[in-house]
């Protein structure tokens, strides 16, 4: 087991204990379940923003977290792309500077930074927004910028928290098919938290169903959604 993401973690939450074990292979894995089932906590634990009480997280053979060995890699050393529900774009920075932020933190030289950020914006179809501020973006545009910012640093795994939930139905439909293309050639496994069955049908290669912090079903979208 070298490529891909493997985790087996336990996180105590106020109402229950999140205890999830899964292997995420390349492609898009949707994590679904009712709200409050621990989906976001799982994502935060994978990103290194929440420390599990016990367990292990491995990414491409690297140990990100191991309770037994006392390893807890901080978020900046995990090589994960994380897009929270509200996108969390840096409000003072222009779109291009938002996208260059991670490259700058990784010490990529200035010209190279700009070149790669512009290329990524073009791939997302939003090169014309480079000089805008986040406050001047629509929801769909902000989502694309957040994706560009997360992908430009070439993460080993992309973590999306309800990527489409903040959008109106029309934009959501458009962005869903866009997301499908982007995620298909993201070049890394994707874990996507959602509660939308349509997202699962369109985007996912595999599904993990959480309930009260436990995996109650896993498999291909077809199998899992038929049973549910």
């Amino acid at each position: 087991m070298q490529r891909g993401l493997f985790f087996d973690i336990q996180v105590p939450l106020p109402a229950f204990r999140l205890a999830v074990r899964a292997e995420v292979s390349p492609g898009v894995t949707a994590v679904v379940g009712p709200s409050g089932s621990g989906k976001t906590t799982l994502l935060r634990a994978l990103a290194g923003l929440t420390v599990p009480a016990d367990g292990i997280i491995q990414l491409n053979g690297r140990v990100l977290f191991s309770a037994k060995e006392g390893i807890h890699l901080p978020p900046e050393r995990r090589r994960v792309g994380y897009v929270p529900q509200q996108y969390a774009l840096f409000p003072r920075l222009r779109v291009i500077d938002n996208v260059m932020y991670g490259l700058k933190a990784r010490g990529v030289p200035r010209r190279e930074r700009r070149r790669r950020a512009m290329a990524m914006l073009e791939r997302m179809g939003i090169a014309h927004l480079a000089d805008r501020r986040p406050a001047q973006l629509s929801g769909g545009e902000a989502q694309r910028v957040a994706l560009a910012r997360a992908l430009v640093v070439e993460p080993d795994v992309l973590l999306l928290d309800e990527p489409l939930s903040a959008l109106d139905p029309e934009t959501r439909r458009q962005l869903r098919s866009f997301l499908r293309t982007v995620l298909a050639d993201a070049g890394c496994p994707v874990v996507c938290v959602t509660h939308d069955r349509e997202d699962v049908a369109t985007l996912a290669d595999a599904v993990l169903v959480l309930k009260q912090g436990r995996v109650v079903a896993a498999g291909s979208p077809k199998d899992v959604m038929e049973k549910a």
Binding site: P74, P75, G81, A88, Y101, A105, A150
Partner: peptide, 12 residues
Amino acid sequence: GLAEVSRTLGAG
């Protein structure tokens, strides 16, 4: 959330 995203982007 901004500080957290900054961390995941590689900023210590």
